[in-house]
Amino acid sequence: MVDINLIRDLTNAFGPSGFEDDVVKVIKEYGSEFDIESDSMNNVFAKLRNNTGKKPIVMLDAHSDEVGFIVQHITSKGLLSILNVGGWINSNIPAHTVKIKNTKGEIITGVITSKPPHFMTDAERASDKLDLESIYIDVGATSRNEVVEDFGIQVGDPVMPDVTLQYNDKNGTLLGKAFDNRLGCVCIIETMKALLDNNSLAVDVVGGFASQEEVGMRGAQITSQVVAPDLAIVFEGSPADDLYYDEFQAQCALKKGVQIRHMDQSYISNTEYISYAKDLADKNGIKYQSAVRRRGSTNAGKIHLAHKAVPVLVLGIPSRYVHTHYNFCALEDINSTVDLAVEVIKNLNDNSLNKIFKR
Rank of each mutant, 00 (worst) to 15 (best):
D122P: 05
D35R: 02
A220V: 07
G105E: 05
R125T: 10
V163N: 05
S211T: 04
S336F: 00
M120I: 03
G156A: 02
P311H: 04
N5E: 15
D282S: 08
V44A: 14
E66W: 05
D22K: 15
V206C: 10
L174A: 05
K47L: 06
S297W: 09
F119E: 12
A232R: 01
L10M: 00
A330V: 00
R359Y: 05
L340R: 03
A277C: 12
F119S: 02
N5T: 10
V111Y: 09
P117R: 10
D162H: 11
I189E: 05
Y273W: 08
K346I: 00
F34I: 02
C185R: 02
S64G: 14
E124F: 00
V163D: 07
I70P: 07
C187N: 09
D128W: 00
L79K: 04
N270H: 11
D241V: 02
L254P: 12
L353G: 02
L130I: 10
K355M: 05
T103H: 15
D131W: 09
P94T: 06
I74N: 13
R261I: 09
P56C: 09
Q265E: 15
A309M: 01
S76E: 12
N102T: 15
V342S: 11
G18I: 02
E247F: 05
G216A: 09
F14I: 02
G184H: 11
C252D: 08
K358S: 12
D350R: 11
N347R: 14
A62K: 13
K358F: 01
D162P: 00
F34S: 07
H73I: 08
E66N: 01
V234W: 11
I135D: 10
F69C: 07
S143R: 01
F14H: 13
D230K: 12
M192D: 13
F248N: 14
Q259T: 08
V139S: 04
